[in-house]
C-alpha cells in the first residue's frame, strides 16, 4: 500500500469536486494550471473522470444534495488515494456553519489527508499544501519501510 502511494506522487492526477462552493476556490484551483503558477510542471493534471484520479480535491461546504454524490464518487476513486480539502468551507463549513443545508463538515463523511485553509486560499497556498501532502506521504512511507 505505502509503496503504491509513493509511486502516485511522481505524477498525481487530480480530480476536482465541488460540493457547493462559492466558486472562488474552484477558480483558484484552475488558476494553478495557468501560466503564472503552472502546476503541470510537477506532473499534476486535472482529470475529468474520477476513475483516473489519484488525488481528490474537495471544495465547498457540502450540502445535503451534493454530499450523497461526493460519497459515491469517493467510493469510485481507485485506492489508495489522497484527499485534499481546499478552502474554509471544506474545512469547517466556514461562513455556512449555521446553514440548514450544510449539516456536517466534509471530513465527517470522507477521510481528509490535508487541509488547505483560506477563503479562498491563494494558488501559492494550494501549491504549498500539495507539497506538504507529498512530504507527509514520503515520511509515512519511510517510517513504515524502516520498521
Amino acid at each position: 500500500m505505502s509503496m503504491k502511494l509513493k509511486a502516485l506522487l511522481k505524477s498525481a492526477w487530480v480530480f476536482h469536486l465541488s460540493t457547493g462552493s462559492c466558486n472562488n476556490c474552484d477558480i483558484e484551483i484552475l488558476d494553478c494550471l495557468t501560466p503564472r503558477f503552472d502546476i503541470e510542471r510537477f506532473g499534476m493534471l486535472l482529470v475529468g473522470s474520477i476513475k483516473h484520479a489519484d488525488v481528490l480535491l474537495i471544495t465547498g461546504s457540502g450540502n445535503r444534495k451534493s454530499m450523497e454524490r461526493a460519497k459515491r464518487l469517493y467510493e469510485q476513486i481507485p485506492k489508495p488515494c489522497l484527499v485534499v480539502a481546499v478552502g474554509e468551507c471544506a474545512l469547517s463549513r466556514g461562513m455556512f456553519i449555521h446553514s440548514y443545508n450544510c449539516p456536517v463538515p466534509i471530513d465527517k463523511v470522507i477521510p481528509v489527508d490535508v487541509y488547505i485553509p483560506g477563503c479562498p486560499p491563494k494558488p501559492e497556498a494550494i501549491i504549498a499544501g500539495v507539497v506538504k501532502l507529498i512530504e507527509k506521504v514520503k515520511k509515512g512511507t519511510e517510517k513504515k519501510s524502516s520498521v
Binding site: K65, R69, H98, Y100
Partner: peptide, 23 residues
C-alpha cells in the same frame, strides 16, 4: 440545479446588516 444551495438568504437574515455583506 440545487447542488449548490447553501441557504444564504436564510443565513443573511440571522446576521446583522453589517455582517451580511460578508455572507
Amino acid at each position: 440545479i440545487g447542488y449548490n444551495h447553501r441557504g444564504i438568504e436564510k443565513l443573511s437574515e440571522t446576521k446583522t446588516f453589517d455582517q451580511s455583506t460578508f455572507v
